[in-house]
Amino acid sequence: MLSEDDIHKVAELARLNLSEQQISELRPQLSKLIDYVAVLEEVDTDEVEPMVHAIEQTNVFRDDIRSPPLPREGALANAPKTDGKYFLVPQIIEH
């Protein structure tokens, strides 16, 4: 069973503000899933290469040729907060 602390840690990594109720629901659900997927432990994979892509291709490139950018209005059109030039975010505190 995942601990409440585990859930908090993962929620913080994932940037989710979970309520106490959500945590109490998620804890058994995730624990059950984690227990379920542990079945993979029984598979011998010592000599097996991980398979990242469904179809394995290499060296997919494009040429270094420009195409037009979005107009600024288009770039900012869907943003929740802008000043018409920049995306605005709550103050970033660096130090």
């Binding site: 997919v60 490139f61 494009r62 040429d63 270094d64 195409s67 950018p69 979005l70 107009p71 600024r72 770039a75 900012l76 869907n78 030039k85 920049y86 995306f87």
Partner: peptide, 26 residues
Amino acid sequence: DAPNTQTQPLCIALPGTLPVLNRHAY
């Protein structure tokens, strides 16, 4: 001096966009 005038959908991480590697950069 002209912020956000040099973006394409990928630069803004719009949903559905995909990266394709620049050969010259490589």
